[in-house]
């Protein structure tokens, strides 16, 4: 499948650049993340346990509980809804992860490639709480590492993944609105910092 890695189409980032965008503030960095492949995994009716165990062998660890996310080696996964998860892995090595995952779970699950359905911005630094409270209603100050919250920022539905409370978060939103989401994040950061 090597040929998929070197075809003739050059990718651009959700913000339209050839390199991911980085914005730096005192005590905060907002970084566009483009190097993750995504695939959604839904349990088939009655195969909830089967898909969990098949996914666990593929990922090397259990699928996360509701409103949570977790990492296993190169993989990470977050809960999207009842019997529905998003799986993530490095793009360069796993551009075709959806097909591999489908093979792993077989009839037990439905897999859909989601890599380019989303844009992701990682927010890092001690000012995370102050900036996030201008953006969404999630109770981030009471949150813990491993929380995956579906919330909205400036009218955009996003997933907010807490990596380290108050320090590191991933914000995953709809790719077509990447510029609007980025604007919201940067405006909030400028407002606070």
């Amino acid at each position: 499948m090597g040929k998929f890695d070197n075809h003739g189409l050059k990718a651009i980032s959700p913000l339209g650049g050839y390199e991911p965008r980085v914005d730096v503030f005192t005590g905060l960095q907002i970084r566009e993340v483009t190097d993750r492949a995504l695939a959604s995994l839904a349990a088939r009716q009655g195969s909830e346990n089967a898909v969990k165990s098949a996914a666990a062998s593929y990922l090397g660890g259990a699928l996360p509980e509701p409103a949570g996310w977790g990492e296993h080696g190169v993989f990470s996964a977050w809960w999207m809804g009842p019997d529905l998860w998003m799986i993530s892995a490095p793009h360069d090595s796993h551009e075709l992860m959806a097909a591999d995952l489908k093979q792993a779970v077989g009839e037990a699950g439905s897999v859909v490639e989601q890599t380019d359905g989303w844009c992701r911005f990682d927010m890092e630094g001690p000012r995370c709480f102050d900036v996030l409270e201008r953006l969404c209603n999630a109770n981030v100050r009471a949150g813990k590492a491993g929380d995956a919250t579906r919330t909205s920022m400036e009218h955009l539905g996003v997933f907010l993944l807490c990596q380290a409370p108050g320090q590191v978060y991933s914000i995953i939103g709809p790719r077509s609105s990447a510029a609007s989401l980025h604007h919201a994040l940067v405006a909030a950061a400028k407002s606070v910092i």
Partner: peptide, 15 residues
């Protein structure tokens, strides 16, 4: 509620 069907939007994933 017991149909085996899974839905997800992929509008943005494909150009």
């Amino acid at each position: 509620p017991d149909m085996d069907v899974q839905l997800i939007s992929t509008t943005e994933a494909w150009a």
